[in-house]
Structures are given as C-alpha cells and as structure tokens.
Amino acid sequence: MRYLIGETNWKMVTLSKAVADSGVLRTRCEDGEELADFHGMGQHDLLVLEAAQLGRAVSLADLRAQRPGLPICVVASNPPPERIAQWLMAGADAVIEDTAPLPEALAQLSAVARRAHGVAQPVIERGPLLLDLEQRRAHLGDVTLSLSPKLYEILEFLVLRPGRLAAREALLSHVYGFEDEPAPRVFDVYMCNLRAHLQSVGHALKIETVRGAGYRLEVTERRSDARPLAACSRAA
C-alpha cells in the first residue's frame, strides 16, 4: 500500500511518520497547494489530508472527480457532526479526529484503503498464497516467503489487482513514488526473483508478462484446490 499524505501541520507529520513506521509506503506533500497535483500524478491507494486544507487549495469534489475510485480520509480537529456529514457527502470516505490514538488512526486508514480494493480483512487469499497486509508477509502453505521490501511491495500491488493488467509505469510509480526509479534491467531482475519465489505453485498462481504493457497476476486454482507445497523452499 502507498498513502499520499498532506503533511501540512505537526499532527499530520506525526501521523505520516507512524504510517511509514508501520511499513506502508507514503508519498509526502508538504505544500497543500500541490496536493491536487500529487493526487493526479502518483500511484497511491489512499489520500490523507487535513480538513483545514479544504476550501483553500483543494475541494473534496475536485479530488473525487480527479480520481473517482481512490479513497480519501480527512483528518480534523473536533469536527461537528454536521461538518462530518458534509465531508462524507462531498466525497470523503472517512473522517478521523486528530486526537485519535495512532494505532486507531492507522487501523482506520488501513481499513479504508484495503476495502477500496474489495478486501474486507487484512489477510488476502489468492490460490495457494496468503498475503498478510498488516505483517507484510507472504505465505505459501506453512512456508513464509523471504521477500525483500521491494519484492513484497511488487507482490502486494499485483495481489490487490488479480487478473488486471498492471502497467509497468504504474507499478514503478507505486513502488518508488517520486524517488529515482531503477534501471529497467534492475526491475526485470526483481520480477525474475519474485517469480522464482512463486515457481513451486506455478500451476495455481503466476505472474504473466504482457509484452509492451505490464504484468498480470493470474490465479487458476482456489486455495482448497491447490496441490501440496512440500517442494517449496524456505530459502530467500
């Protein structure tokens, strides 16, 4: 997961740091006037902004029109019920009070982000693969895959979009944000390594390359139908 966070006051900076500490990728925007531009350019799963920014440089209606399917969370200080209702009607998916304990706020953000992908619980099943979004772990049967952070992030992106084409540019933007992206050959090595981790269940789940376009995660068997995983390696 990657969140776009408007770090426009100290409480938002604190929340942003807690997001990063939890392992979730983040794109930081320190200037509220640039938030709409960041929102339009990046590949993120959730937008988190401070209520005070609304009506200044951005509006919920504009943000929602810009990316209709991307969830938005508003962080507010002691908002009255009628204002919360207005924000929700205008396009916000959740309103979080800035006094909420960080674990509670993080859980709310996670729930909104994953449910936008149709995922109700933080553990996702794709054929023989179980992906734990909270622990950032991938499991094949009783084997926990030894994935580097980048490999996990690539796998998570694909698992959240099964059967859908993931454009190479979108995948790179999600994993690296606005940081320097690696040379194409380096990313090809990442994909090769990730496929090697999944090789033992290639009959049930595989990453397909769509030449000139991107990648697609294909799941051909349900977990209950998949063959035993005794051949899986525990090595990195």
Rank of each mutant, 00 (worst) to 15 (best):
M1Y: 05
G6Q: 04
N9L: 02
W10K: 08
K11S: 11
T14M: 11
S22F: 03
G23W: 03
R26I: 13
R26E: 10
R28Q: 11
R28D: 11
D31I: 10
D37G: 01
Q43E: 15
H44F: 15
L46Q: 08
L47A: 12
V48T: 03
A52S: 14
Q53E: 15
Q53G: 01
A57I: 01
R67W: 02
P68Q: 09
I72L: 14
I72W: 06
I72F: 09
V75R: 04
A90R: 12
D98T: 07
T99R: 12
E104S: 12
P122R: 09
V123G: 00
P128I: 02
P128N: 03
L130V: 06
L130E: 13
L131W: 01
L131S: 01
A138Y: 01
D142E: 12
V143I: 09
S146W: 02
P149M: 05
I154N: 03
L160Q: 09
L160M: 14
L160P: 07
L160N: 03
R161Q: 12
R161E: 04
G163D: 07
A166F: 06
A166Y: 05
R168P: 00
E169M: 00
A170D: 15
L172K: 06
L172E: 11
V175C: 15
Y176R: 06
Y176F: 15
E181C: 02
P182Q: 05
A183V: 09
R185D: 11
V186E: 12
V189A: 09
Y190K: 01
C192G: 13
R195Y: 04
H197Y: 04
L205S: 01
V210N: 02
Y215K: 06
T220S: 15
T220Q: 13
R222W: 02
L229F: 03
A231G: 15
C232Q: 15
S233P: 01
S233E: 08
